[in-house]
Design a protein around this nucleic acid. Sequence first.
DNA 1: TTGAAAGCGCTAACAT
DNA 2: ATGTTAGCGCTTTCAA
Lengths: 374, 374
Amino acid sequence: MAAKGRVTIREVAERAGVSVATVSRVLSGNYPVPSATRNRVMRAARALDYVANAHARALVGGGRKMVAVVLRQVTSPFYAQVAEGVEAEAAERGWLCVVGATAGDPQREMDFVQLMREEGARLVILVGGVVEDDAYRERVAHYAHALDASGARLVLCGRPAPDPDLPALVVEFDNEAGARAITGHLLSAGHRRIAFLGGLPGNTALDARVAGYRAALAEHGLPPEAAHVVDCGLGRAAGHRAMTELLKNTEDTGAVEVTGITGGTGGFTAVFAGDDMVAAGALRAIADAGLRVPDDISVVGYNDIPLAEDFSPPLTTVRTPAEELGRAAVRIALRDPEHAAGAHHLLGTHIVVRDSVSPPRRGAPPSDGGSAPV
Amino acid sequence: MAAKGRVTIREVAERAGVSVATVSRVLSGNYPVPSATRNRVMRAARALDYVANAHARALVGGGRKMVAVVLRQVTSPFYAQVAEGVEAEAAERGWLCVVGATAGDPQREMDFVQLMREEGARLVILVGGVVEDDAYRERVAHYAHALDASGARLVLCGRPAPDPDLPALVVEFDNEAGARAITGHLLSAGHRRIAFLGGLPGNTALDARVAGYRAALAEHGLPPEAAHVVDCGLGRAAGHRAMTELLKNTEDTGAVEVTGITGGTGGFTAVFAGDDMVAAGALRAIADAGLRVPDDISVVGYNDIPLAEDFSPPLTTVRTPAEELGRAAVRIALRDPEHAAGAHHLLGTHIVVRDSVSPPRRGAPPSDGGSAPV
DNA sequence: TTGAAAGCGCTAACAT
DNA sequence: ATGTTAGCGCTTTCAA
C-alpha cells in the first residue's frame, strides 16, 4: 500500500521491474509492448491501485478533454436539461464536464471563465438568455478572444452573439418563430386580448419572444396597441405577482375593450407567459383569484419543462428541446473545430397542445362549463 | 499576443524584466514584493492576458481544490437541488465543482470516480439513494479506501454507509422519520387504507420510507396486512402506471375492506407516493380516471420539489432541504477533515401541508363536493 | 524491446 | 529584493 499520497508511475515501474517509460507505454496503450512485460506492468499497477496523475499528464500532453458549462442555476428545469445534454454528450466522448453556476452575477461568471482557462478547458459553453448591455458585450468579446488565442472554443448556447465576428459558435432556438407560432395558436382559438407576461427588456431570449408575439398580432391584423407586455422578468414568483396585478388592474380600471370581448378577467382572455415557470405562477394566481383555466382565461407557456403536463391544467406550451440544445453545442463545437467559429445554428421548436387553451367566452359571466381542451 | 497556445510565466517574466520566481511570487501573493516590481509584473501579466496553468500549479502544489458530485441525473429536481447546494458551498470557498451523471449505470459511476481520482479531486460526493447489492458495497468500499489512501474524502450524501467502518462521511435525511410523520398525517385525517407507491426493494431511501410508513401504521394499531406497498420504483411514469393499475385492480376485484371504508377508488382512500415525481404521475392517473384529489382520494409525496405547490392540487409532502443537504456535505467534510471520517449526520425533515389531503369520504359515491383542503 | 533523459509550467527552497 | 535551480509525475524522443 502507498504510504502517503498517491502511487506514482515510478513505484509501479519498480514493482514491475521495468522503467517508467515502459509503464507509460503500457498504460497509454499507444505503443506496442510485448504481452509478457505488458502483463507484469498491468499486474503491478492493479496491485498498487495506481491511477495516473491527470495534471502531470495534461502538463506534458497539452491539456485534457474538458468542457465547462456556465449557467445561472442548475435548479431551473430548462438549464438542468441543457446541462444534462452537455454532460451526456461530453461523457460519451470521454470528456469531462464541469459546471459553474453564476446566480446571474457577472463577477462570478468572469471568475469561473478565468478558472476554466487556468484549468485548460477546451470548450466553454455559456448557457441561456442574458440582458445584453455594454459590459456584457465586452466580457464576451474578451472570453471569445482569450479562449481562441489558447486554442479553446467559446459556445453561446441559447443566446445570440453580440458581434458576428467573434470567434464563437452560437447554438440557439428560434425564439421569435416559437413565440409567433404559439401566439398564432391563441389567435386562432379566437383570442384578441392576449397579455405577454415576463418581458425583460434587453434580454435576448425574451425580446425575441416578445417580437414574435407582436409579429403574430400584426399578422392577424391587430394594431400595435393590442400588444400588452408586462416586464416582470422570469420566475414563478414574478409570474404570480404579475398575474395577480394584471387581474386586479383590469378589474379596478374596468375592462379594456378592443374587440368587444370581456370576461371575468377584465380585458384579457389569454396570457402568454415568457416561460413555463412564469406560467406556473400565473396559473396559481388565477386559481387564487377564483378563476379557471381555460374556461375563464387561457394560458400558454414556453419551454415545455418536464412538469408542464402536471400543471393545472396541463400546459399548452412551446417545446424547446433543451437537452438537444446542450448536446448540439458540444457536438457541433467538437465536430468541425475550425469551421465552427462564427457559425450560427438555429434549432427548431414546436407547440405542444394540452389543456390550457380554449376559445374565449363571449361576454358571458363565468359559467360552469366543463374543461374545454382545444 | 501569444503566438500559439497559452502564455507562460516565462513570457511574463521577460516582458516585466524579472525572473519567473518574481512573477510567481507576485501572482501567488504569498511573499512580499516591492510594489514597484509588483506593478511591473502585474502590468505585464495583464498586457499578455496571462493565466496560470492550473496543471503545473497542481503538480507542484499537490492537487487543487476540487469537489466531485456523482448523481444519476441532473434533471431530477431533487438531485439538481443537491448539486446546487454543493456547487454553491464549493464556490464560496473557492473550490471547483465537477458533476458526473451516471444514469444509474455502475460502470459509469466507477469510470467517473476513477477519473476524479486521476484529476485529484479531494472530495467525492455520491448523491442519492441506491439499491445496496454486494457489487455496490464492494464498489463503495473500494472508493472509500482508495480515496482515503490518497488523502481524499468520500461523502455519502442521501444514503447510509454499507459498512460503518468505512472511511466515509455520511450526510442524509431521516427518511424513516419523515415517512412516519406524513403517514401519521394521513392517519390523523382518518385514513386507514393507505397505499405506498414507489417501493424499490433494496433501495436505501425507499426502504427507509416504507419502514416509516409501516411503523406509523403499527403505531395507530393497524395490523401489518394494512400496509400495501407497490414496488414500482421512482419516476413520474412509474407513478402513473402504478396508480392506474391500482385503480383498475381495486375496481376489478372489488373493494378491499378492512375498516369498512370504501370509495370510488376501491379500497384505498389515500396514497403515499415515494417521491413527488411519483406523486405527479399518480395525480395525473387519478385525474385521468375521473376522480378528484383530495375529495375521492388523498395523495402525499416526498421531497417537496419546487413545483410541488403547482401540482393539482398543491401537494402535501415532506420537505427535505435538498440544497442544504448538498451544502452540509461539503461543509462538514471540509470543516473537520480528520474527525469527519465515519461520522454520520442526519438532517431533519418536516411536513408541508397543502391541499392534497382531506378526511376520507365514508362509503358515499363520488359526490360533487368543493375542494376540501386540510 | 526497453531504458535514459529532456522537458511540460510552475513553486519553493536555496543563493546572492 | 530577486535570481537560480531542483523537482512535481508524466510522455516522448533518442539511444542502445
